[in-house]
Amino acid sequence: MTATHIQDVTQSGGPTQPGFVKRMWRDNAGTIITLGLLITIVPFLPVYWIRVFTSMMAVAAAAQGVAILHERIGHVSLAGIGMMAVGGWIGLRVAHGLGLPFEINLLVAAIGAGAIGALLGLPGIRHKGLIFALVTLMFAAGLHVVVSSVGFPDGGSGFWGRVSGSQERAFMARPAVAQSDHAYFIYTTLIVTLAFGLTYAILKSSAGRAWAMIRAGDAVAKSAGVNMKAARFKAFFLAGALSGIGGCLMAGSIGQLDGRSFDALQSLLLYGLVIVAGPWSLAAALIAAFLYRVFPALLDSWGVDGDIAMIIFGIALIHAIVNAPRGIAGQLQDLSALISSKFGGAAR
C-alpha cells in the first residue's frame, strides 16, 4: 500500500538547527565542565581518592543506563550494578582468555552486556512498572548468587576462568597508556565522557526521538509509527552496554572483581540515587555515582560511619519525589539560571 502524496508546497529556506557540538554544549554545559574539572583536579588527589573517583566514573556509566531506561522509556531497572557485574565478568574473561588489548575487552564487554540487557528487557516489551522492576531485581539477585559463589574470572581455564589449587590469581591488565592510577582515572573519565557523548548523540537521533514519543504515551508513539518493540530493545541494549562499560572499567581499575560488591541491594540503591539526581539530565549519572561512591567515602574520611549515607539517601529520595521531581540536576539548573539572570540583570 502506498500513501497518496501531498502535493509539494513550495517554500524557500528551511529550519535551521544548531550544530551537534553547539547543541551538546547548550544542553550539557554543566556536565562537560564537571568532567573537565574532574580530569583536572582528581589526578592531584591522594591515590585512595583517585581510586574512589575512578570507581565513581565506572558507576556513572551504569547510572546513565538506569537513567535512560527510567526517563526515556519509563522502565524501572533494578539491575544497574548487576549489569556492571556482567560487563566486568565478560571483560575479565576475554582479557584472561584471549589477551586482547583493553579497548577490545571494553568493546566486547559493552556488546555482551548490551545483548544480555536486551534479553533481560524482553519482558519489558510487554510489562512495565512493578513487574519489570521485580524481574530486573530478581536477575540482579540471581547474578549476585552466581558471582559470589563462582567468582569472577582470574586467569584459570574453562568457561568460568577460575584458578584452582595453588595457582596464583591473575590481574586484568590496564590499558598500555594508563598504567598508573592517575592515568587510569583520566582514561576512565575520557571513556565515560565518550559514552555520554554517544548517549547524547543517540538521544538526538531517530532512536531518541522514538523514546521521547514513547515517554509521551504509547498511543501517540504508535500513531507516529514508532516501532515500540524495536525502540525499547535499543534502549535496553544501550543501558546494558553502558553498564558493561562501567563493569569493565571497574575490573581494569582493580584488576579483579569481588562478587560481594554486586549485591542486588546495590542496584536498588543506584536506582534510588538516579531518581534523586534527576534522570532527565545526563548529569544525573555523575551526581548519582558521586553519591553512591564518593559521598560514603567522604563520610568515612570525616569519621562518620559511611552507612549513615543510606539514611540521608532515603530522606533525599522522599524530598525528590515530593518536592523536587527534576532532582538535584533540576535544582542545579534552576540555581544556574537564577545566577545567570542576576548577573545578566546586573550587567544591564
Binding site: 538547527q17 531517530s206 526521538r209 522514538a210 521521547a212 515517554r215 509521551a216 501517540v220 507516529a224 516501532n227
Partner: peptide, 25 residues
C-alpha cells in the same frame, strides 16, 4: 494518521523533532 483530543507531543523534543518522528518511521 491522527491527532488527539488533548495535543500529544513529546515535550522534551523540539517542534521539528516531534515532526521528524514521522520521517523516521
Amino acid at each position: 494518521t491522527r491527532s488527539f483530543q488533548t495535543p500529544q507531543v513529546a515535550a522534551d523534543l523540539t517542534a521539528a523533532d516531534n515532526i521528524r518522528v514521522s520521517f523516521d518511521s
